[in-house]
Every structure is written in C-alpha cells, then in structure tokens.
C-alpha cells in the first residue's frame, strides 16, 4: 500500500493552488524516494515539475511504485476541505482505482476522509537535464509576484534582463512602458529579503505574462524564488517547499518568428 502523512497539511493545499490553474490533470508518481509530478500545460508552452522527498514526510510508506492520475480541479476541491492546521494523509492500495485523503485536526478530535476516483492518463514524461545556467537570480517571492502582476497591465510579455548591475523587468504596450530594476542586495539582515545574482554572462529574454502569473500562484510556498536563465533554454522558476522538496516551472522564451 501507499501512505504519506504530512503534519503541515497546509503544504498540500498550497501545492494545489500552485498548479490547479495551469494544469487540468496530472500523474502523481510515488516511489521509495518520494512523490513527483511532471506535467505540461494544455498549450505545451510550460512544464511543472514537483518533487516531494519521502524523508520530508512524517510518515511515508510505498510498497510498490504507483502512478496516480488525478483531476487537479477535483483534488483541489478536496484539499479545500482540509483546515490549515490539519494533518493530511494520502493513502492508496497497490493497484488503485481511488485515492483517499484523510484530514485530522491538530487536537485529534475531528477526522474526515475523502475518496477520489483516479484517472488513466497517458502522458509524455520528459527528461530534464541538470544545467549550468548563464544567470541565476534569487529574490523575494512576493516581490516577483508583485512585479509580474504590475507589468502584466502593460502588455502580454515581460522582458527579464540580467547583468552584473542587477535584474530588470520590462513591459510595453498600448498605454506605455514599465521598467522595474532590482539591484543585488549589498547588506542583508534577513536572507529571505535578499536579491542575489550569480552570472556567467548577461542575458535578456521575453516571456509570456500569462504563464509567469500562473507560476506566482506558488508564492505562499516559499519566501524566495529562484529564476534561472540561459540562451536557447527555458526559464526555470523554482520555489523551495520547506525541507521537503521544490516546485519548478519551465517556460519557453518568446522568439521572433
């Protein structure tokens, strides 16, 4: 059987919020090492890759590798039934048709279980190589969400340019243009408020606002976001998830036709 118990059940609630607008359905692959999910959006422009390590769970048992196809809208509905402080357990048999979500209140006085039908999904699984990126920007996740939201008012695209001086976000359209520049933090008391840039070479790429705004739904998961860019390669937007794993979004840059 499969059983994964997480005392901080709110993490599951936040993960669903971070993927449900971008993906309609996805396979959750469960094995000894933990739970992974990889899926493309409907337009196949972006890719979500989620990794939750088994040692990050309060209890984890996986007798046989499982692939559970789920409708994420349905899963999100169920996780909305969990309280923010609830302990969440996901349970399934070895060849499951259904998955069960169990929510327990902190004091143990309330327990609910929700059973959801699984789907058979035939999804392409991609190999994402580890890459050295030309630029890696780490910045407060809330700041990135704010910039994406603000600049989306000006056009469909945001240009992200990174140099030694800092990182610049730009957008332009019918009403005018906007630029937001962030310098690398010189003196930071709190690590989570820092802007740091690791650069091999300066880069400048154009990305669709629509997708960046989908990615920032993961903001409640993490204080910081990491943006990694290289020529001829998709942008990687990564949010750490406590000490259990991370969610990564990949987005192909816009190029001149």
């Amino acid at each position: 059987m499969f059983e994964a118990r997480l005392a901080k059940g709110a993490i599951f609630k936040k993960i669903l919020e971070a993927v449900k607008d971008l993906l309609t359905e996805a396979s959750w692959d469960c094995g000894d090492m933990g739970i992974t999910l990889q899926a493309m959006d409907n337009a196949h422009v972006s890719l979500v890759s989620l990794n939750l390590r088994s040692d990050g769970f309060d209890k984890y048992r996986c007798d046989r590798n499982l692939t559970m196809g789920m409708n994420l809208g349905s899963m999100s509905k169920i996780l909305k039934c969990a309280g923010n402080d609830d302990i969440v357990t996901i349970r399934a048999q070895d060849n499951p048709d259904t998955v069960t979500f169990v929510f327990e209140s902190e004091n143990g006085e309330k327990q609910s279980d929700y059973e959801m039908k699984l789907m058979s999904l035939d999804l392409e699984h991609l190999q994402i190589p580890e890459t050295e990126y030309a630029c890696v920007v780490k910045m407060p996740a809330g700041e990135f969400a704010r910039i994406c939201r603000d600049l989306s008012q000006f056009g469909d695209s945001i240009v992200i340019s990174c140099s030694k001086q800092g990182v610049k976000f730009s957008a332009s359209g019918d009403i005018g243009s906007a630029n937001v520049k962030l310098a690398q933090s010189s003196n930071v008391d709190k690590e989570e408020e820092a802007v740091t840039i690791e650069m091999q070479e300066p880069v400048s790429f154009t990305y669709a606002c629509r997708y960046l705004n989908f990615f920032t739904k993961a903001t409640p998961l993490s204080a910081q976001v990491k943006l990694s860019m290289s020529p001829e390669y998709p942008l990687m937007v990564e949010y750490a998830i406590d000490d259990i794993g991370q969610i990564r979004y990949f987005l192909a840059p816009k190029i001149e036709d």
């Binding site: 493309m40 196949h44 422009v45 972006s46 890719l47 392409e124 991609l126 190999q127 994402i128 190589p129 695209s157 154009t206 669709a208 390669y233 998709p234 990949f250 987005l251 192909a252 840059p253 816009k254 190029i255 001149e256 036709d257």
Partner: peptide
Amino acid sequence: KQKQRSIASFFGGS
C-alpha cells in the same frame, strides 16, 4: 510577431 516553441522540444520530447 513572436512565437513560442513547445516546452517538450527542449527536453527531447515531441
């Protein structure tokens, strides 16, 4: 005019 490649094409997919 700008276009976007399929994300799969970067990772060896179709």
